[in-house]
Design a binder for these strands. Structure first.
Length: 821
RNA sequence: GCCGGAGUGGCGGAAUUGGUAGACGCGCACGACUCAAAAUCGUGUAUCGAAAGAUGUGGGAGUUCGAUUCUCCCCUCCGGCACCA
């Protein structure tokens, strides 16, 4: 009798799969499936159990597809540019390349030890010049189309990391990475005009199959809102101020015009302002504040009136005061609003400064509240009185010559980083010609070797000090010029990596048209929720841009997107090095085996929800696999009996069974029904990422097989096949032990037999007035009347209904009978 | 504040076109095997109760023959956004 020893079999099959390249995609023929996980950042800590959760899930999906006959691509690579490596280089004096090499070697070893079916022939690395050549090339295309531009803007500056951050990287006013409050700094930055794609990024979400919460989060981030632009003239001046509002219906109630402190109009009408010094002080104070300070003052509204200047309400000619206030944002809308009492902020502002307010909406429900912000019926609004808000918005906008417009919260993407370990932005600054792109033939612009990686506090990249690299000839005039020393953010390489997988070694294009047409879009992409408004949005943007250039064949990169929940430490806290609660997968693989770890991670809870790690619970999945092995032993024993071989060699306790009798027994039919139900459930559950219930179903099936007197070898093989995506090593071993020559992972996915799924005898409940009082066994063939009659006759039921007048009897097929009196 | 998600035994969790709540697993208890232990196997395991039975899916109301599932109100936790006009 052989014993399950994961150490013996896991290494063996990993080598075998590698040698035979069973997971490599060799052609572009037939139906395809492209499954994708977010390629890992190779940190020095090695693989995290969270990686394993996501990777195993997609490994199961792709293995199933492969067995269903799809030409299946499941690639892997390294998103290797980024701060942790650079910081480690600064600390240790080692080169980022060397660190990356070491880390990717560790990750590769770990991933292989877990038995993932990656196509290792397509491994990519964003820090490889042969790869980032194309990242730079795509940037040049953005530049050519005017979507990459330089702007002097106030950026989010992290004083600890000494790096500029994109808006998406600032969490509650603090650096996403280190938690330091960010400062504002004016700097020349490369920008990508993602806002030009805002509308399509929003609208095209309708065409893809993403989890609803992902769509909602992206939509909220893009922040589409429809409203009106309305111009206010300034009294005694030719100037006008454009406001943006979604509530044009409240225009009659405007009591002030409120501008962002950064609003350019303030400079233009400077001469008319009587309290200029007060205004300038307020503007300066605002500038000094960080975002946290500006928003954390309990939302207390502050502002200053521009004395000596009045605006004219276009709807009724009323003169109203003009204020500047820091709660009005320069970046959104037009940086100017009109204030009215049907908005909580304006209401609070008016209360604070004792401004007179006028009610112009009645609550249709008739409930009086101090500040009514809903849609209502217009009042005090001249000829618009009595209109509904919705209708009046359009009418009033038309009446004052306003424009219906759409605005977005999304802002352009700050694309410069003042750090070393990133793709150099392929631009040259010439004294004569200005900004000149590096000619495509000169790509890649390779990162030069440097001695010191420290960023500087003046906001320049360490690259700026490498004069030999910085000083170049202008590609246009051959005169003196300097290279751009900013690098790209780490979101650059990951914005298009899935495309490279289709043709990873191509030297002429980022990928051939033919391969792109065959493999894209990605059919199923799984990743973390934390990337919803970062990577996922950025890569959709890049993809749409490439689509517009006719370089990719689809409008969207990913057809389907799911996300996994985090794996938390035992107490429900996040795993972190500082807390010392990180689980090392290497140790788990050693003691329990990769198959157990995989099954455990799939079984521990619903895939899309957070779960807490518990090493103690791993014995369940381990026992499960050991018992699978025991069924194999049972079959070996059965076969020996059948072949009348020497019984003493069979270790398992086996009773003599006449197989022919068993085949037609009801026990056999029950086992068949369980097996086919399990095949059905596992097949379906994988599609809905309900891996936990799939494992549970297989456990139930195994329990049945254990109880059975005999297990049919063919049936057991089917069981191994549906288990194979979850536990690839043990199933491969047993598959081959049972005489199969070809890998189980290249075998055909079993189909359930609909006829066998139906039970011929079932137990249903009988309830009286909704309370369950008995159980009865019924057969398939019984009709409703027969079942009801049987239920009424049950002695436990009779006790309850005796002498009562039965009002009705309800029968739910295959479920229950309810008797009501 | 707004937008999502969740609340079920000692623990992880299962079950929703409304139909036997607690599947499966962990843990625990008892038993078998063993000189013994571990492992393994078997039985049991929501709560109260000797039992009959009653109660029970965050709390409160409602619809229904029947509600974890649907409706209304409220509470707690997690995630995202946060003065977006």
């Amino acid at each position: 009798m052989k014993i399950y020893d994961h150490k013996k079999i896991e290494k063996k099959w990993q080598k075998e799969w590698d040698k035979k390249k069973i997971y490599s995609v060799k052609n572009t023929k037939g139906k395809k499936f492209f499954g994708l996980i977010e390629f890992p950042y190779p940190s020095g800590d090695g693989l995290h159990v969270g990686h394993i959760r996501s990777n195993t899930a997609m490994d199961i999906i792709t293995r199933k597809r492969r067995m269903q006959g799809y030409n299946t691509l499941y690639p892997i690579g390294w998103d290797a540019f980024g701060l942790p490596t650079e910081n480690y280089a600064i600390k240790t004096g080692k080169q980022p390349e060397a660190i990356t090499k070491k880390n990717t070697d560790t990750f590769r070893r770990q991933l292989k030890e877990l038995g993932f079916g990656f196509d290792w022939d397509r491994e990519i690395n964003t820090t490889d010049p042969a790869y980032y050549k194309w990242t730079q090339w795509i940037f040049l295309q953005f530049y050519k189309k005017g979507l990459a531009y330089k702007a002097r803007i106030a950026i989010n500056w992290c004083p600890k990391d000494k790096i500029g951050l994109a808006n998406e990287e600032v969490i509650a006013g603090c650096c996403e990475r280190c938690g330091t409050p960010v400062e504002k700094r004016d700097k020349e930055q490369w920008m990508l005009a993602i806002t030009k794609y805002a509308d399509r990024l929003d609208k095209d979400l309708d065409t893809v199959d993403y989890l609803e919460k992902i769509k909602i989060q992206q939509r909220n981030w893009i922040g589409k809102s429809e409203g009106s632009e309305i111009d206010f003239k300034i009294k005694n001046s030719d100037e006008k101020i454009t406001t943006f509002t979604t509530r044009a219906d409240t225009l009659f109630g405007a009591f002030a015009l409120t501008l962002a402190p950064e609003h350019p109009m303030i400079l233009k009408i400077k001469s008319q302002i009587l309290n200029l010094s007060e205004i300038e002080k307020y503007i300066n104070d605002t500038k000094k504040k960080t975002d946290i300070e500006r928003t954390s003052e309990d939302k207390d509204k502050t502002g200053v009136e521009l004395k000596g200047v009045k605006a004219i309400n276009p709807v009724n000619g009323e003169e109203i005061p003009i204020y500047i206030a820091d709660f009005v944002l320069a970046q959104y809308g037009t940086g100017a609003i009109f204030a009215d009492m049907h908005d909580e902020r304006d209401f609070a502002f008016a209360k604070k400064y004792n401004l007179p307010m006028k009610q112009v909406l009645n609550n249709p429900q008739g409930i009086e509240s101090e500040c009514f912000t809903g849609d209502g019926i217009l009042t005090n609004s001249g000829k618009f009185d009595g209109m509904t808000s919705e209708y009046a918005r359009k009418e009033i906008t038309d009446f004052v010559g306003g424009r219906i417009v759409t605005k977005y919260k999304l802002r352009d993407w700050v694309f410069s980083r003042q750090r070393y370990w990133g793709e150099p932005i392929p631009m040259i600054h010439c004294e004569k010609c200005g900004v000149v792109p590096v000619p495509e033939k000169d790509l890649p612009v390779v990162l030069p070797k440097v001695k010191k990686y420290e960023p500087t506090d003046n906001g320049e990249s360490p690259l700026a000090e490498i004069t030999k690299w910085v000083n170049v000839k202008c590609p246009k005039c051959k005169g003196k010029a300097k290279r751009e020393t900013d690098t790209m953010p780490n979101w650059a390489g990951s914005s298009w990596y899935y495309l490279r997988y289709t043709d990873p070694k191509n030297k002429k294009e980022f990928a051939s048209k033919k391969n792109l047409k065959y493999f894209t879009p990605v059919d199923w992409y799984n990743g973390g929720m934390e990337h919803t408004t970062l990577h996922l949005l950025y890569s959709r943007f890049w993809h749409k841009f490439l689509y517009d250039l006719k370089l990719v064949p689809t409008k969207e990169p990913y057809q389907k997107r799911t996300s996994h929940g985090l794996i938390l430490a035992d107490g429900g806290e996040k795993m972190s090095k500082s807390k010392g609660n990180v689980i090392n997968p290497d140790a788990i693989v050693k003691t329990f085996g990769a198959d157990t770890l995989r099954v455990y991670e799939m079984f521990m809870g619903p895939f899309d929800q957070h779960v807490s790690w518990s090493t103690d619970s791993m014995v369940g999945p381990r026992r499960f696999l050991e018992r699978v092995w025991k069924i194999y032993n049972k079959i070996v024993a059965q076969n020996m009996l059948k072949n009348k071989k020497n019984l003493s060699r069979v270790g398992a306790p086996v009773e003599r069974v006449k197989r022919e009798d068993f085949i037609y027994s009801s026990a056999y039919l029950t086992l068949q029904a369980t097996l086919h139900k399990t095949i059905k459930k596992v097949t379906e559950d994988i599609e809905t990422t309900s891996f936990n219930t799939a494992v549970s179903a297989m456990m139930i099936c195994l329990n049945e097989m254990e109880k059975a007197e005999s297990v049919d070898e063919k049936d057991f093989k089917m069981f191994l096949q549906i288990l194979a995506p979850f536990a690839p090593h043990i199933t491969e071993q047993l598959w081959s032990e049972l005489g199969e020559k070809k890998s189980i992972h290249l075998s055909l996915w079993p189909k359930f037999d609909p006829k066998k799924v139906i039970d011929n005898e079932i137990t249903i409940a009988v309830s009286v007035n909704g309370k369950v009082r008995a159980e009865i066994k019924i057969s398939n063939e019984m009709n409703e009347e027969e079942v009801k009659a049987m239920a009424m006759k049950d002695h436990a039921v009779v006790n309850w209904i005796e002498g009562k007048e039965i009002k009705k009897v309800i029968y739910v097929k295959g479920r229950l009978v309810n008797i009501v009196f």
